[in-house]
Design a protein around this nucleic acid. Structure first.
Length: 881
RNA sequence: GCGGACGUGGCGAAACCGGUAGACGCAAGGGACUUAAAAUCCCUCGGCCGCAAGGCUGUGCGGGUUCGACCCCCGCCGUCCGCACCA
């Protein structure tokens, strides 16, 4: 006798051990079958996995297990994004070292992931903080350097004077460092940059070919790269207005960038960025301007500051000549809304057709002349008030452009200015600009990949020779002072120059952790660190990743950097592919209700008891039994305390239940709401499936009958149900629609359950036993990717001696799905009035006759003659009266 | 401000290429078994009318195209997300 209940804890542990012993998830690079690379974004080793990980890895595991069953050689690896600031903070607080803390976390999280029963090849595990990993990264850096993909330049950074470190923009909150609370300073530092902008156009254009990427992500990247086509125009500065600046070099003209050259006759002023060289030059002789510049700088770059800032400017007194009219002079302002980082840091202002420029002239009284009139309006009466017009129309007030379209006018202005030459160069040239900036990778931190260069007083920047890699992080560091421990280390940075042998110092900056994650998918292709450190052939075999799964929060940076890295690695001869991820899927978050007790104190779900009375739900604190407010459902977070610990769920209900619940209900790209009732429901289903399989086994008996030559009607019906579901589940897994997949499994289980219940007499006929055996196998296969442990247990019950995880996917017999009869829906005037069951082969005439003969149809027609009958084969009949 | 997505029962959702709206699950209500509970099983479950058969109505709102619209088009309303002084 089978046990009544499936023993989750025992079975799950048993099967995990069996898989591990048999090493069935170990992937060989020599396997001749077609490859399939499925990858989920690797975790940061914070110490514990969270439900978001469970969801992410459950999805990836379904794909991996399904593809394996379909006959692919599947690569499904796991690693750790292990460098980063939290390790340093932990080291400071707990008197441990970043390495110790990180590796302890990795060990804990590895055990947690293993308890999920994921079909991972753990022999390929990597940690980015391991010298065996980052030595390759240092080599890549040196190769990029040699290939001209690395630049060293000055750049403005957010500097925290207390922590003595650079902060990312996200770490600056209201102008203060997120940890120290100190006012952040803007500093110029010499930093290392990766020249991602070399690939701006390629990265943009290739987005169109990433067909298996979400449209949303492609659009976000497109906007981020921000290509615009325009004109770079040289405006001559009126020498008479130079004053004290007369004679200074490079001050004879002003370069601007515009995408609207058509509006040149609507120009009212020029504006330059506060940190534009011309502004700095003018400020030398104008203390008030100097003060203005200082003031705008203090305002900072925070989002809030930009939102509320008024358009402010300062008239430098300089004037420039209009390119088409030497008698027309335009004043040059320093303006707080012009960015030095984009274009040339200078613009011409056309208030009628740009809202910012309009706001500006309204404050400074510079006038407005419309030059584009919407086609449907009368040019004579068209005026601009508080709303700039940026649409299409007809050129007006624009001399030789009058009457042209906007596009024609752009072309005409560009053409004319390109022909005018000043000092032998054209006055304007067409230019393409991008918002995308080069990627600054220098971080003044310890726990990151050392940048492998040496600074020599005589030879300058000298790359560390390849034979000296890796440049390892020193382990004897202390965090008792702020700043970068590498800088203070007594010996680490002092080395001999590889070129001249004299005393030199190491670069003490480390790399942005985004570098580590920009190529880890390549590293996984190397089995067990066995191949040469940089074997391009092997990577080509596996890449691109066929299915990549992760959170939408990486839509831009990680995914864009990885796309850049792949191109850079190709340039250096490592790879033959351009794109790292052929298919991308961004999954939704795991959300949970929030609970607030006395004084707004957040309560964890485990501290709350929720009661349902009819429609109403009330929550009580377990401690004190006081009423608790049920708050909005939000992303699980430590601060709101609305988290659920995967460990507790797995030990209570098992990994299969956790996985099943994460995959059911919500579409995978949407948020899923974690509820206690939902988990319990999923748990019940595991037991239900177990009982159903046991019942099927009782019907089939210990000896499977051979497949009969002919099946009876009921046996054939059961087979049709099973194969129908199988075909549907295949389609749904292909489309990653796991929720629909699970609904289909329920339908199959419900129908098989009913069929089992309908059997009364024993013994059961052989054909029926064969059909049940087949259907049982199919059912187990269908849920095996989601609930792999239960599936193995059921597979064994059905008499198999193999792992279902290693068994080939059953072939859906699509001929079975086609039945002899079809059901037509019969409508009268588009409203359903009845159904018609008829042979598949029936021609339109017969279908029409049969449909009109239906009582309900006759009633609805009410003696009116049919004016028209529309028949969609095998679907619908619509009678129009 | 710019760009995008989404609005379907009490809830999560499904619905192929324009062809039966609400599959499947949760919650709820009723019942069976039980000393009781748990577990399990059965029934009901968009709204309105009706004893029933059945009818009417219904996919955010208002129009349109069509034999037929959750789906396509136009105009609103709402929610969410991304970017944000990008010239």
């Amino acid at each position: 006798m089978r046990p009544e209940r499936y023993n989750v804890r025992e079975s799950e542990a048993k099967w995990r051990k069996a898989w591990a012993d048999a090493q069935i998830f170990k992937t060989s690079n020599e396997d001749p079958r077609p490859k399939y690379y499925v990858l989920e974004m690797f975790p940061y080793p914070s110490g514990r996995i969270h439900m978001g990980h469970v969801r992410n890895y459950a999805m990836g595991d379904v794909v991996a297990r399904y593809r394996r069953a379909r006959g692919f050689n599947v690569l499904h690896p796991m690693g750790w994004d292990a460098f980063g600031l939290p390790a340093e903070n932990a080291a400071m607080q707990n008197n441990t070292s970043p390495a110790e803390w990180t590796y302890a976390n990795i060990a804990a999280m590895r055990a947690q992931l293993q308890s999920m029963g994921l079909s991972l090849d753990w022999s390929r595990e990597i940690a980015t903080c391991d010298p065996s990993y980052y030595r390759h990264q240092q080599k890549l850096f040196l190769d990029f350097l040699a290939a001209g993909l690395v630049a060293r330049k000055k750049s403005k950074v957010n500097w925290d004077p207390v922590d003595q470190t650079v902060l990312a923009n996200e770490q600056v909150i209201d102008g203060r460092g997120w940890r120290s609370g100190a006012a952040v300073e803007s500093r110029e530092l010499t930093q290392w940059f990766l020249k991602i902008t070399d690939y701006s156009d390629d990265l943009l254009a290739s987005l169109d070919h990433l067909e298996r990427w979400p449209e949303k992500v492609r659009l976000m990247q497109k906007n981020w790269i921000g290509r615009s086509e325009g004109l770079s125009v040289r405006f001559v500065i009126d020498p008479a207005t130079l004053g004290a600046l007369k004679g200074e070099p490079g001050l004879s003209e002003l370069d601007i960038y515009t995408t609207r050259p058509d509006t040149l006759f609507g120009a009212k002023f020029m504006a330059i960025a506060p940190d534009h060289p011309l502004a700095a030059a003018a400020a030398k002789h104008d203390p008030a301007l100097h003060a203005f510049i200082e003031e705008t700088r203090k305002l900072g770059t925070s989002v809030a500051a930009i939102e509320t800032a008024e358009k402010k400017g300062y008239d430098t007194g300089l004037k420039v000549l209009h390119p088409f009219d030497p008698d027309w002079r335009l004043p040059v302002y320093v303006a707080n809304f012009v960015l030095m980082e984009y274009g040339s840091g200078a613009i011409f202002g056309c208030p009628a057709h740009d809202q910012r420029d309009l706001d500006f002239v309204r404050a400074y009284g510079l006038g407005v002349t419309p030059v584009v009139c919407p086609s449907e309006l009368d040019p004579a009466s068209f005026t601009i008030d508080t709303q700039a017009y940026d649409g299409n129309g007809v050129m007006i007030n624009s001399r030789f452009l009058d009457g042209m379209t906007v596009d024609a006018a752009k072309q005409e202005v560009s053409r004319r200015l390109e022909e005018i030459t000043i000092d032998g160069r054209p006055q304007a040239r067409r230019q393409i600009n991008y918002k995308l900036r080069d990627w600054g990778i220098s971080r003044q931190r310890y726990w990151g990949c050392p940048i492998p260069v040496i600074h020599c007083p005589t030879d300058g920047v000298v790359p560390v020779p390849a034979k000296d890699l890796p440049v390892k992080l020193p382990e004897d560091v202390s965090f008792d002072q702020p700043g970068n421990p590498l800088d203070r280390h007594p010996t680490w940075k002092h080395v001999a120059c590889p070129k001249c042998g004299r005393a030199a110092t190491r670069e003490t900056d480390t790399m942005d952790t985004f570098v580590d994650s920009s190529w880890y998918f390549v590293r996984f292709t190397d089995p067990h660190n066995a191949s040469a450190p940089d074997d391009p052939a092997m990577a080509n075999h596996w890449l691109a990743v066929d299915q990549y799964i992760g959170g939408i929060e990486h839509a831009i940076l990680h995914l864009l950097y990885s796309r850049f890295f792949t191109r850079a690695m190709r340039k250096c001869g490592y790879l033959g592919v351009d794109e790292p991820f052929a298919g991308l899927f961004t999954q939704g978050m795991v959300v949970h209700e929030t609970y607030r007790g006395d004084e707004g104190r957040w309560l964890a779900p485990s501290e709350v008891r929720v009661e349902t009375e009819g429609e109403a739900r009330r929550a009580y604190a377990l401690e004190g039994d006081t009423l608790v407010e049920i708050g909005p459902t939000e992303k699980m977070s430590k601060s709101k305390r609305n988290t659920v610990d995967p460990d507790e769920i797995i030990s209570t209900y098992g990994a299969d239940t956790a996985r099943w619940f994460m995959l059911s209900d919500s579409p995978p790209e949407r948020d899923v709401i974690w509820t206690e009732a939902g988990v319990q429901g999923a748990f019940k289903q595991t037991q239900r499936l177990w009982r159903l399989i046991c019942e099927i086994e009782r019907i089939v008996g210990p000896e499977r009958p051979p497949a009969p030559a002919q099946y009876g009607a009921e046996a054939q019906r059961i087979r049709r149900i099973a194969h129908n579901a199988l075909a549907k589940i295949e389609d749904e897994i292909d489309r990653l629609r796991f929720n629909v997949c699970i609904a289909t499994i329920y339908e199959l289980a419900n129908e098989l359950g009913a069929a089992v219940g309908a059997i009364s007499e024993a013994p059961v006929a052989d054909d029926l036993r064969a059909a049940f055996a087949e259907a049982g196998d199919i059912l187990v296969h269908c849920f095996a990717p989601m609930m792999p442990h239960l599936a193995e247990e059921c597979w064994e019950v059905l008499g198999h001696k193999t792992f279902v995880a290693e068994s080939p996917w059953p072939v859906a017999d699509r001929s079975l799905i086609v039945s002899a009869d079809v059901t037509y829906v019969v409508q009268v005037n588009g409203k359903k009035r009845g159904e018609l069951m008829i042979e598949r082969e029936a021609d339109k005439e017969r279908v029409e006759r049969a449909a009109l003969a239906l009582d309900a149809v006759a009633r609805a027609m009410d003696n009116r003659p049919a004016r028209r009958v529309i028949i969609v084969p095998h679907r619908i009949v619509n009678v129009v009266v």
